[in-house]
Structures are given as C-alpha cells and as structure tokens.
Design a protein around this nucleic acid. Structure first.
Lengths: 356, 356
DNA sequence: ATGAAAGCGCTAACAC
DNA sequence: GTGTTAGCGCTTTCAT
C-alpha cells in the first residue's frame, strides 16, 4: 500500500506538472524509446505499427525497450496525425419499467468487447432522447472524438436518424428502421422467436393460443405479433380475436389483458407475450384463479430477463452477444466505407423452455 | 433521406481522404474560424476557453463564425497540447445471476451524466475480472486515453487495486475497500437501510426477525448483517441464531434458508434479506406453505430491482443516481489532485415499502 | 532497412 | 485585448 508520498506522485502525473519531477519518470515518448534502443523514432513507430518492416534483431531490441519503459503511443497524438478517431459512441436507453435495463447493460458490454477486438473504443453518454441526444452525438463527431454512433431502439419516424444523416454522421442501428431507410442495422428476429413459442404451445396440446402485446402500431410488437399469427396459420389454429394490446408495458397491464381473455366464452389456454413483464401479469392472474401455469396454462414471455429465469417463466431470448458482435461488424464496415454487402442483419431469437 | 451520393460523402469524411473534396467542406480548424472572423487563431481559442478575455464585440464575431462553420476543437489535438486526457474508464461487471445487472446500467448512465457535466467522458470496457482488467486499464492510462479508473465492487484483498496503485493509476471505487486502504471510494450504507427494514418489521409487530445473507466473510453481506443486528439490539429483540447464510445468491438458496428457518421450533416471522433474489426464494416458500407475505410474514429484499417492484416486494433501495454523482465528484477531485477533504462518501440507502 | 523532415490542430507563454 | 511563436507526440513522405 502506498503512503502519502505515493499519493502525491500519482497526483502529479495527472496534473501534468511533470517539470517538477525528476527526468527519469516522465512519460516515455517515441524518442525515449528510440534513445534507449539506439534507433530513430520512426523505427520505433514501425516496430509497433508494422513490425514486418524491421530486421528481426532491431525489432527485438526496440520491443525490449518498449517493454522496459512501459511505453504506449499517445492516443491523442496518434489520432491527430492519422485524422481518424478510434471511438464510437452509444448510450444506454433509460427504460422506465426497467425490467429490460439489464438487456442493454449486456448489449453495451458485448459491444465494448467486440469493438475492442478491432481496436475501437466505446464511449458512453447519458442523453435524453431526441434533440439533446443528437446534438451530443454531432458535437462528439465534430470534435473528432467518435467516428460513428450506435443508435438503439429506433422509432418509426425517428428524427434522430434524420438529423444525424443530415450532419453526415455515420450511424448503425440496433433495431430496425421501421420506416424504410438505407442505414445499416442489426435486429433480433422476434417474429421467429414468437413463432417457435407458439409451436411449443401447440406441441403441448394448446389450441387457443393468445398474443399479448403493446400498442398496435409499434413496430416491435407488430413484428412479434406477425410471428404469432403466421405460426398459427401454419398450424391451422385460430387466431381471430386472440390478440390483445395494452400499455404501459407493466405487470398490471398483463394481468388486465389476461383476465379479459380468460373471462371470454372461448378462453385461451396459452399466452405468448411481447415482454416478460406482461407475462408476469398473466402468471399472477392464472395463479390467482387456481390454475396451474405450465400444466393447464402456457405462459411465454419475451427477453429472457433475469426475472423470467428466477421464476421459471419460459421466454424468448435475444442473443444479445451476437447482436453486439454484428453491430460491431457493421460499425467497422461503416467506418471503413465498405459499401454494399452486409448492410444489415437479422439475428434469430430462440425460446428458452422452462416451467410455464 | 440521403441517396448513394450522400453515403459516399459520408464515407469520405470518416476515411479522412479529405483531399479529394472541395475545400469548403473540409473540417473547419481554428484557422478557418480565425480567417472568417478576421482575428488570430489564439483569439478563437480564447473565445471558447475563456471568453472573458475578449472584447464583447470580438467575442460575438468569433462565436458567430464558430456557429456558422459548426466548428469544434479537435479533442485529440487539445489533449495532446494540454497533456491531460479528459476521459475516465469503467466497466459493467458481469453479474452472472444478473438480477442486479440493471443496477450497474443505471450506475454507468448516471456516471456518464455526472461526468459530462464537468467535461469528462466515460469510456466503457469489457474486461474479465482480474489481471486482464487491470492490464487494460493500465494500457489506457499509458496511452493517455484516461486519467482515472472507476472500479466497481472491490473485494477484500483486491489485487486489481494493488496493481493499479503500483502503476500509479488514479482510482475511485464504487464500494468500500474492505481491507483498509486510502483510496477514494463511494458506497451505499447498506447497514442503515437494513436497520430501517428491521424497524419497519418490528413496527408491524414482528418479534423474530431473521437475516438472510450470503457468505459470512463477504464485506457487503457482513455490513448489512451488522445493520440488522444493531437494529435488533436497539429494539431489544433477539438475534441469536436468526442469521443464516448461503451461496450462490439465488432463488433456490433463499428458499432453502427460509425453509430451514421456518422449520425451527421458534420460527421467525420476518426475513430481511441481503438481496432481492434471496427474498424471492423466501417469498416462494412462504406462499407454498399457505402463509400470507405482508400479513403473517414480512419479507424484505435489497436493491429494489425491477423484479421487486413488479412483485410488490419491499426492498432497500440504493440511491444509485446519487452514488454516481458522488463518484463523479471524487473522480474530479482525484484528477485535480485536491488532497485531503472528501476522500469518501457513504450514501444512505432507504427502504421502499411495498406489500411484503 | 533505417533516418530526417514536416506538420496534424491545438493552446501556453510571451510580446505588443 | 490581441497577435506571434513554439511545440505537444506521433506518423507520413521522402531520402538514404
């Protein structure tokens, strides 16, 4: 453990008041390394950037010096010279109901991992949705701090997207641009996941399989509903009148919708939901009525949140890690300007079968 | 919506092959602005950094030019010249059981907000715990990309901390350094929150109030247990034999511990738990036995996760936003080298009273 | 295969 | 209050 002296030293480094310190523990530069290795500055630069240019012996000597000094190229200087920022920015959307919050945490972490593999850093901002958010991105772009923006959860007519493109800021979306656009995007194929859920319900003998989603003209919910309906059509099962919608995305909404469906003459025995939260509501109603979820009733959520895992709720999982990797790929392409190919990806979601 | 031409243009900017473009839409520099405003470069710099130095009229003219060109200082160049990186790094810990994942999401978002208010950027990394993580931080520090590290969830004898201090990297902790050290840290006063929970149970008539935590020598759990015990002593209620511990932090563990406590001769009627997950386990056992949580039995969780909110579970809440702000304050102090004062903060946790 | 020179865009220090 | 000079640490270009 360092005492007061160590603490002072550490402070100095940060302040940059290096003049006050003995020459030897200044931050090493290319020249420091060059001097130690007995070569010129470019040779050091080359040793790190394109080692193949050096004679094996020189290379060894230079790398030893680098190692000994703990030298690392100054990223600001490098960015200045190379004229290309090496970062990308995103934010964690503020999810009020927050059951999904963990999803975004996993997404950004995965994104950071995938990007760092190709030498791109991830900068995080907090910005309210809308104008402020975009202004912040454009600002970062103008300052050459970032070379692209990863935008989450795009809406049907997303002003953010329009504004960013107007400012010529490269963008990659996590989520589909529901109104057509030629941005690069990655999204989860919710429809396929929901269809799988429906088929599983059918396998277990359910004939009246309901869909519970949120507002009808939300792209995400509609996509999932499509999966439900097409699966039912394929299985030759009824779907008319079996879809219900409610907002907000809450346990109460789920409970309300489920109660409504159960009170009908031809009650459904399976509920495929657009979110885990809605499914929780269904679960509570089913239990209240003395019915056994997983036996008499099937309940399937969406997102495979920790809550679902904790309660044994079956749920459709977004393969978030793969989404993050794909976003990283597209970011790389966007930055490099690889036109054409691979402008977007739809990652299949899969059903996690649990008790319900 | 931009067509192919727009896309090409956009690509060019990123690639930095600016030579190919007409002079007018090159990235504006200080000189561009200076020329337009009819002043020297330094005056432009001053206009943005310390406006008070300029004559009101000049200032107006310069700012107008800045605005017109959309000029922003190049952050790399600025960092290079000023010798101080303006970023800080942290990571979102990978929480396997993940009920707490949303907590960290909120924390980093809050941190990004608080830091950006003082002009510090937040960089996110993905790094496994331990050596790799530290190596990454040191690397970033050496590259002058960051000026400090925010370390989450420090353990009793945390090698990471030792290594970072050895490399003279400024650190601020979210969580207490359970083995003494002079690092700056911010933590939540879990003991106080738990004590409040205990008192609430007592108010509702419970006399045998149990504590369920994880491994006995974990600092966090022990802290919370202290709060429980001291509250009971204050209230003159029994505590001997009423604490139980289990790992991992899971619903099953909570259920197991609760079952054990309930099967005793003198069963407890209230359970104050170290996490929401444990509390969920308790809840399930209590329900299974036909007992009514919130009426016959009190169950209190910790962290106020969305799950708790969804299920009506009372829980002790970490005021995560305030924690983030405090961390930002200490980071600022650490970077500035303000010695002494305010080296750490304990933020009170508060009980969210719900059904249970 | 290695070295020398130039300059990226900015701001600290100093002159006027 | 404003302009001039110098140089942060790096990489690109050209010369050797």
């Amino acid at each position: 453990m360092l005492g007061a002296a160590g603490s002072v030293c550490l402070t100095r480094v940060v302040e940059g008041s290096l003049a006050a310190r003995s020459g030897s523990d200044r931050r090493p530069t290319v020249d420091t390394v060059a001097a130690l290795a007995g070569v010129s500055r470019q040779t050091v630069s080359n040793a790190l950037r394109s080692p193949s240019l050096l004679a094996p012996d020189t290379l060894r000597r230079v790398l030893a010096a680098v190692d000994q000094l703990g030298y690392r190229p100054h990223s600001g200087a490098r960015a200045l010279r190379r004229q290309i920022p090496t970062d990308v920015v995103c934010r964690i959307p503020h999810v009020e109901d927050a059951v999904n919050a963990s999803l975004y945490g996993a997404f950004v972490t995965g994104l950071a991992a995938a990007l760092s593999a190709v030498g791109i850093g991830l900068r995080l901002v907090d910005a309210d949705w809308g104008e402020h958010e975009v202004a912040r991105y454009i600002d970062l772009y103008r300052r050459s701090e970032i070379s692209a923006v990863v935008l989450s959860d795009p809406q049907a007519h997303d002003d953010r997207l329009t504004a960013l493109r107007a400012a010529a800021v490269p963008v990659v979306l996590y989520g589909r641009p529901w109104a057509g656009s030629d941005v690069r995007w990655v999204d989860v194929d919710g429809a396929a996941g929901v269809a799988e859920a429906v088929r599983w319900c059918a396998e277990r003998g359910h004939r009246r399989i309901a869909y519970l989603g949120w507002h009808e003209d939300d792209g995400v919910s509609r996509d999932r509903e499509c999966g439900w309906r097409s699966a039912l059509e394929e299985l030759d099962l009824p779907w008319d009148g079996l879809a219900a919608h409610g907002l907000p995305d809450s346990v109460a909404t789920g409970a309300g919708l489920a109660a409504m469906m159960l009170d009908r003459a031809a009650a459904s025995t399976a509920f495929v939901c657009a979110t885990d939260v809605l499914a929780l509501g269904v679960l509570s109603v089913v239990r209240e009525r003395g019915l056994r979820p997983g036996v008499d009733y099937a309940v399937i959520g969406f997102d495979d949140t920790p809550t679902a895992a904790a309660l044994g709720l079956s749920s459709v999982r977004q393969p978030i890690r793969r989404v993050a990797e794909s976003v990283a790929d597209l970011v790389t392409a966007e930055i490099a300007g690889d036109d054409g190919e691979h402008r977007n990806r739809l990652i299949p979601a899969s059903l996690v079968r649990r008790l319900t």
